[in-house]
């Protein structure tokens, strides 16, 4: 009798959890349903919580008839993947050295990484604009990749460090005794073991760069290298109330995030908790 009550209570908690999750995520639901409603459904006097009629006109119009957006999508992938690779390339040996090797001023370096994370993006975007325009690197993927990598590198270094620290110490010592150089030991033995950390940090870097608006807005004027976020922003300005199309573009922009999130969910949640409160 008592256990039956307990089981019931457990499911009662689930029901409340489901309801609050649904209410909380309502905006996302509203985005997706707006994109598949006909205009009459969107402008109805009583809002249609469940679409009376479903159509994919907005997707056809924005992705099939107008293929320009595929270009923006590709640009976003180039920028996000590029800055993710650049960040991991520089951050992993750096973070490994902080975790394992004998260095002077480690505490200061770590403190510096913590402090720079609080800089507002505009604080970097403004000098970047001036410097990159002097270097003739505006409207260039390189400047966007560098800008995004700069922003995520301190974060990456800090979050990777505990992953390197958790790898048993004997491993690389053994490799060095066997005649490996420190670097080969790092590359061949430590990095493969740090894969979960690299996945966590990599997905974060990708998502950061994917969502960036400010750098792309400031460092590009040319449509051919603009990412999806800037497109969506100009789209809001041009078609202010064409909610149907806007929500379709927004939905497509979220899809890669949901995919990455589902694939790396465990790593992301863990990384968030370990990396931020430190």
């Amino acid at each position: 009798m008592n256990s039956l009550l307990k089981v019931n209570q457990k499911y009662f908690t689930t029901v409340i959890a489901v309801i609050s999750t649904i209410i909380f995520l309502f905006p996302v639901y509203w985005m997706v349903t707006t994109s598949i409603k006909p205009m009459s459904g969107i402008l109805a006097t009583t809002p249609q919580l469940i679409p009376h009629e479903i159509q994919f006109q907005a997707y056809v119009k924005n992705f099939i008839q107008d293929t320009e957006i595929l270009r923006f999508f590709l640009n976003s992938v180039i920028i996000a993947a590029g800055s993710m690779i650049l960040t991991l390339l520089f951050a992993s040996p750096f973070s490994y050295a902080l975790a394992r090797l004998d260095l002077r001023g480690k505490g200061w370096i770590i403190g510096f990484m913590l402090v720079v994370q609080m800089l507002p993006n505009i604080m970097l975007a403004l000098p970047f604009f001036i410097l990159f325009s002097k270097l003739h690197l505006l409207n260039n993927f390189i400047s966007l990749i560098i800008a995004n990598a700069t922003l995520s590198m301190p974060f990456a270094i800090l979050v990777l460090r505990p992953f390197f620290m958790s790898i048993p110490k004997g491993l690389e010592e053994a490799a060095v005794i066997d005649g490996c150089s420190r670097f080969t030991a790092f590359w061949k033995i430590i990095l493969p073991l740090a894969k979960p950390g690299l996945l966590t940090v990599g997905s974060f870097c990708f998502l950061h760069a994917w969502g960036d608006l400010l750098f792309a807005l400031i460092l590009t004027t040319d449509k051919s290298i603009r990412p999806l976020t800037v497109h969506l922003y100009t789209f809001v300005g041009q078609y202010g109330t064409d909610w149907n199309s806007l929500m379709a573009v927004a939905t497509v922009c979220v899809i890669p995030i949901i995919i990455i999130f589902i694939a790396f969910q465990k790593h992301i949640v863990g990384g968030l908790a370990s990396g931020s409160v430190k």
Partner: peptide, 23 residues
């Protein structure tokens, strides 16, 4: 459900902004 809630945080701000502009 915990993971689903986290999605709100992962969505690029441009999209959240557009979405709330509509709401």
């Amino acid at each position: 459900m915990r993971a689903l809630i986290l999605i709100a945080w992962m969505i690029p701000l441009v999209i959240t902004g557009t979405l709330f502009k509509w709401m």
